[in-house]
Structures are given as C-alpha cells and as structure tokens.
C-alpha cells in the first residue's frame, strides 16, 4: 500500500512524468485510431438510417461525444486544480493548462456540429435552447480561463489564479445550467426539442459510445503532448531538460 502511494507521487515530479508521458502517448494515439475506426464504421456503415431524420442524424456520432468531452474536461481541470491546491504539485497546474485548449475545442466543435445538425432538422442554425446556451457559456468559461492564464507571465501564479477560476466555475456551472433551463421554460420555450425518441437503436448507441471513447483517448493523448511541451518550457533551466533540449538524450 505504502509503496503504491510512493509510486504514484513519484510521477508528480515533472522530471519523471515527462518520459512517462512520452511512453504513454503512442498507446493513447493507437486507442484513438482503433476506437475511432470502429465507431465511424458502426456509425456510418452499420447503423440504420433514422426513420425521422434520414442520414442527417449521423452527425450525432461527433456531436454527442464532443459535448460530453467538453463538460468532462472542465471537471477534470477542476479536479487537477483542487489537487494542485491541496498537494501543491506543480504538475497539476500544468495539466489544467494542457487540457484547456482541448476542452475549448470540444465545446466549439459541439456548438458547430450542433448548428450543422440544427439547420436541416429544425431549419435554424441556432435556437436559444437551454443546452445550446449552457454549452455556449461553457465555451466562454474556457476562453476566460485561457485568457487569464496566458495574461499572467509567472507560470506558478498563472496556475494558481487559473485554479481559483476553475473551482469558482465548477461551483457555478450547475447554477448557470439550471438558471438557463428555467429561463428557457419561462420564455415559452423553443418550438423544437432536443429530446430524441428514447428507444435509440442499440447499434447507434454503440457507435456513439465508441466515438466517445475515441474522443476521450484523443483528449488524453493531446493533453499529454501539450503537457510535455509545457514541462520542457518551464523546466528549461534544469539539467535534465537541457539535456533533452540539446538532443543529447533521445526520449
């Protein structure tokens, strides 16, 4: 038990995490390709045409995973921020900054594919539906975090300030979500609803889950690539980082 704990904390140091991340990236890339290929095959070729929405519904295989990941990544960032405050580890702050662009990308992708899906189905690129609105606000929160951390030059201060913003944001997300939802129902609601028929074909569900796994693995792989860059940038004064940067050790 004790040894296990030490093992985990050993990788909290950027110097030990850097090579570990390097070894993990190919695996996650491989899983991304694997899940992506399987999910796209199921989604584009195997899944039947929807009797209401025709072929257009197939954008669900990108849209829903992107929405899930955009919400999940914010929670993961808040988790790392909390870890950073309680254990005072440098790597946690680096992880939040490495995850933020991917989270923002997922939120944007979710809005964009949503608009593309909405146009043929509802006849409008945008409706003020509760879910669309809260996804837009989530994108604002991501952009706020990225803007704050990139405006502060001292990386440790940027990490901590960003961490506070993340924790404040994560407390506010349910409040924002419910307020938007009630606002939407008070304003007589949009005439269209996002709720699909509950009996989704099992094959569609599987395709969606596989695509969600693909997006998940992709996010991890990209975050690891980005965190390696951040580690090297911040640790460039150390001997081990200098060795890597000058190309003495190929890792």
């Amino acid at each position: 038990m004790n040894e296990r704990l030490i093992n985990i904390f050993r990788f909290a140091s950027p110097a030990t995490f850097y090579p570990l991340a390097g070894r993990m990236i190919p695996w996650f890339v491989a899983l991304t390709v694997l899940f992506g290929a399987a999910g796209l095959w199921l989604g584009l070729f195997v899944a039947p045409t929807d009797f209401q929405q025709g072929e257009g519904y197939r954008i669900i295989f990108v849209h829903v995973p992107a929405s899930w990941m955009s919400m999940f990544i914010y929670l993961v960032m808040a988790f790392w921020a909390a870890v950073g405050f309680t254990l005072n580890t440098r790597l946690s702050g680096m992880m939040t900054q490495a995850l933020a662009p991917t989270g923002a990308l997922m939120a944007f992708l979710s809005l964009w594919t949503g608009a593309l899906w909405g146009k043929p189905m509802w006849g409008a690129w945008w409706v003020w539906d509760a879910r669309l609105t809260s996804e837009l606000i989530l994108l604002f929160l991501y952009i706020g975090f990225i803007a704050l951390t990139s405006a502060i030059d001292d990386p440790r201060r940027a990490d901590k300030a960003g961490g506070i913003l993340l924790l404040v944001g994560v407390v506010n997300i349910p409040i924002i979500y419910f307020s938007v939802k009630w606002w939407n129902t008070l304003h007589q609601g949009s005439s269209v609803s996002l709720t699909r028929s509950p009996s989704m074909a099992a094959i569609m569900l599987w395709g969606m889950l596989l695509m969600a796994l693909c997006f998940w693995m992709y996010s991890i792989a990209l975050a690891l690539v980005r965190v390696r860059g951040i580690i090297l940038e911040r640790e460039r004064h150390t001997d081990w980082a200098k060795a890597i940067l000058s190309g003495e050790t190929a890792r």
Partner: peptide, 30 residues
C-alpha cells in the same frame, strides 16, 4: 473574485469582463 484574479495583470480590464460576465448570467436571468 474577477477583480482579485486580474489584479496587476496585463489588459486586466478586458480580461475581467471575460471572467466575470459568464458568471453574472444567473443574476441577469432571474
């Protein structure tokens, strides 16, 4: 919170609005 986070930061004023306005939404709605 926003004012404290952007204290002494480059472009603090615009940044402040970016951080604070999304959090103001529930107050606006109600």
């Amino acid at each position: 919170i926003g004012a404290a986070l952007t204290l002494g930061v480059r472009g603090g004023g615009v940044l402040l609005s970016l951080l604070v306005l999304p959090l103001y939404i529930p107050v606006l709605i109600f």
